[in-house]
């Protein structure tokens, strides 16, 4: 898997890529999935477990706020940081959340967003479990995500990264520094020249360099 310049340097909001940006992205992905599975409007309640390190330091890292924003359909790249406090205040005071930005559900943070520092899911400590229920409290959907650092998120049982569209093939793939240096040797090019060619697989040169 190729990890590009714009995967590593991503616009987001503070204070943590793994504990703020990642959970926001996971929550948005969950809401988006409910929408594309055509069950968004059947949802009356959403339950979220933040496990391991997310449960332990999530409060200081604004993870609960990030999850609520994600459920609203906000993305880390586009959310307006200054608008966050009032948005969160409204959810907390009304106990209502617009799932996916359009479907009203009750959301009681104390019950529906649970910090589980002692639960460590096997793949990575930053595990998140999202569940959506219908009116009769039947489980409509359950998905598990992991925030694996730097804002990168993976979903259990799904290949690749959530919400990333890097190409599988690049002209100069490298998995180690040794392979990278060998590629420089072989092609008589510098590291930046190889990287620019890799990036150009899915962006024009101008896009890469602006």
């Amino acid at each position: 898997m190729y990890i590009g310049v714009f995967d590593l340097f991503k616009v987001g909001i503070g204070p943590s890529s793994s504990h703020t940006t990642g959970p926001m992205r996971a929550a948005k992905s969950f809401a988006d999935q409910l929408e594309s599975d055509l069950i968004l409007e059947d949802v009356t309640r959403v339950e979220v477990d933040l496990c391991g390190s997310l449960g332990a330091t999530g409060r200081g890292h604004l993870s609960p706020e990030a999850v609520m924003l994600g459920l609203l359909g906000e993305a880390p790249e586009t959310v307006i940081p200054d608008s966050v406090p009032s948005t969160i205040h409204e959810i907390r005071s009304t106990q209502v959340l617009l799932l996916g930005g359009r479907h009203r559900i009750a959301f009681r943070e104390d019950d529906d967003l649970r910090m589980k520092p002692l639960t460590r899911l096997s793949f990575h400590t930053n595990g998140m479990v999202f569940r959506a229920f219908d009116e009769g409290d039947g489980l409509l959907s359950q998905r598990t995500y992991y925030s694996i650092g730097g804002g990168f998120v993976v979903e259990e049982g799904v290949e690749g990264l959530v919400d990333e569209a890097s190409p599988e093939m690049v002209p100069h793939p490298f998995a180690t520094a040794q392979e990278l240096l060998q590629a420089c040797d072989r092609t008589s090019r510098t590291i930046e020249e190889l990287m620019l060619q890799n990036e150009s697989m899915w962006r024009s040169r101008d896009e890469v360099t602006t």
């Binding site: 340097f9 991503k10 616009v11 987001g12 909001i13 890529s17 966050v84 650092g149 730097g150």
Partner: peptide
């Protein structure tokens, strides 16, 4: 909680 660019986190 401001806007930042991950580098790498």
């Amino acid at each position: 909680g401001g806007r930042v660019v991950t580098a790498p986190t």
